[in-house]
Design a protein around this nucleic acid. Structure first.
Lengths: 152, 152
DNA sequence: GCCCGGTAGTTCGCGAGACGAACTAGCCGC
DNA sequence: GCGGCTAGTTCGTCTCGCGAACTACCGGGC
């Protein structure tokens, strides 16, 4: 199988696993992704739109629905009264951790057929693709979680 | 970067590229995927649902919209008058080829930073993940196109 | 023959998601 | 203190995905 087909098919696979995991936590894939991004730190609407690749009107809707479920909240930005910081609520934080951990587990299982060394090779190559293409931090490293921007 | 994070982030990346390429061809990602599946051969609604992981009512809608755009058509199944074979129209076939080729090109570019040997290694490892997890043929090999798609 | 359980698809109603265009409100340079 | 820019929201429209209820047809058993 060529690299292109392998990439596209593995994408299909991970999409399905991600959506399933979200569903099992009462989330949609998009809401799960939003929670994962916010695990690191709060963000403004425009920042989120840029990271997730969404139009700002799409973001308004996504945050609306997630807020309605009590998982995130809009906080006024102290520096700029037009702006808003979207942050996890307590409940959202707990759910994000659970969803994140379970999703990691399930995605990890996909690669269970690979030996440890092979997984490392895969991670290295795929990691370079990700970095080369400047993918935003839509899914953190297990060890760059929680305190996120402030280090840890 | 760990294998899990690399997989999830590369998935995000490929999703975006796929959706962009579809959009540039006047398609949604789902319609593009449908066309790619049908490049190999026609399928029944239930088969498509199983391959794409969709409920049958979702398939009806997707095929409806794609048919309305003149890209696929429903043909009666000669063996079973309940059933239907979904096939590309002439226009759909042409568009599918274009979309497929362009998407391959763009996804290939994502891995352009890797040397040829590295791309092969990546393809091998990712290919095993795909095969281990029995991902359906949602995106063909360049050389298993047209008549070739059956077996496997 | 005919009935009956299973299968192939469709319809319907609903909510999520994505977009662009038009809008409000607040920032800031000059 | 005005004019242009930026942050977000609202609105209308479409796609997508689902489950439940439905129709139409296949087949096996008697």
């Amino acid at each position: 199988m060529g690299a292109v087909a392998a990439l596209v098919r593995s994408t299909f696979l991970v999409n399905a696993v991600y959506a399933d995991s979200a569903r099992d936590h009462g989330l949609t894939a998009q809401q799960g992704q939003l929670l994962c991004v916010l695990m690191a730190q709060p963000y403004g609407m425009s920042e989120l739109g840029a990271m997730l690749g969404l139009a700002k009107s799409s973001l308004t809707g996504l945050v609306d629905r997630t807020e309605r479920n009590g998982l995130v909240e809009r906080r006024p930005d102290p520096q700029d009264s037009r702006a808003v910081r979207v942050a996890l609520t307590r409940r959202g934080g707990v759910l994000a951790e659970e969803f994140y951990a379970e999703t990691c587990r399930r995605v990890g299982e996909l690669a269970a057929g690979l030996a440890a060394a092979e997984q490392e090779t895969l991670a290295g190559l795929l990691g370079r693709v990700v970095l080369d293409n400047k993918v935003p931090a839509v899914f953190l490293e297990p060890d760059e979680g929680a305190a996120g921007g402030r280090g840890r």
